[in-house]
Design a protein around this nucleic acid. Structure first.
Lengths: 120, 120
DNA sequence: CAGGATCCCAACCGATACTG
DNA sequence: CAGTATCGGTTGGGATCCTG
């Protein structure tokens, strides 16, 4: 069995590790908001409020999501010395590493939709 | 902006559609069980009970998940004429189309883990 | 304005019991 | 054995209020 197509490595331990690795990706890409936020931030840096409004997300969740994105190095947080204070969020250069993941998923989704909805 | 790296097409409508397409993929790949089940079924066809035990999943959820996988053409369901009845589940040929998605995600996860955990 | 605290509701999932 | 029905616990998100 080819390792690229295999989700069932030889040992249980390997299997668990493979699953965890996949899970890392899912935590970022699979959540309800992360991809939405990333997609919005592709349009440029944004303040907390703007982001909340644009995404239609409550501040509590937005704050949590942004923290996770920041912890994963995908988003940078910059406190501006304004009065009152404001904070800008921006995609990092590293975030483009996700592009391949996203586009692969997008392409499969497109292909799949054709297959399911009676194709063309 | 290159369309491959763009999740923000020109119009809101296009954007919504792109998101739905991505969502189709997430529904399958992002759930708690789908990938687990697919991975187990990579080992060959399996009966309902076996699958439940192997995955550690309750019958109610298993049934639901399998229905969704079947509806998406990823798994086939075969009723065997035994007494009592038994049902075999098996990956379809189509299911291999997911391999690229999965391996891309896996590879990103691996790369990312290095980046986050202070790399090697 | 940022974002934490609180309260509430909805979705989800597991365990178990039950039917065909 | 396959799969559904019921119930109870847990998680996650929305709304709102509040403080720095």
């Amino acid at each position: 069995m080819n390792k690229d197509r295999c989700l069932l490595p030889a040992t249980d331990d390997e299997c668990r590790k493979a699953w965890l690795t996949l899970h890392d990706t899912l935590d970022i890409v699979g959540g309800k908001w992360k991809l939405v936020l990333i997609s919005i931030l592709r349009g440029g840096k944004m303040k907390f409020r703007e982001l909340a409004k644009e995404a239609g997300i409550s501040p509590r969740i937005l704050s949590k999501e942004l923290k996770e994105l920041e912890a994963n190095g995908l988003v940078s947080r910059t406190v501006l010395d304004t009065r009152p204070i404001s904070v800008e969020y921006e995609l990092t250069a590293y975030s483009v590493s996700l592009n391949e993941v996203i586009s692969t998923m997008y392409e499969w989704g497109q292909m799949h939709r054709q297959k399911i909805t009676g194709k063309a």
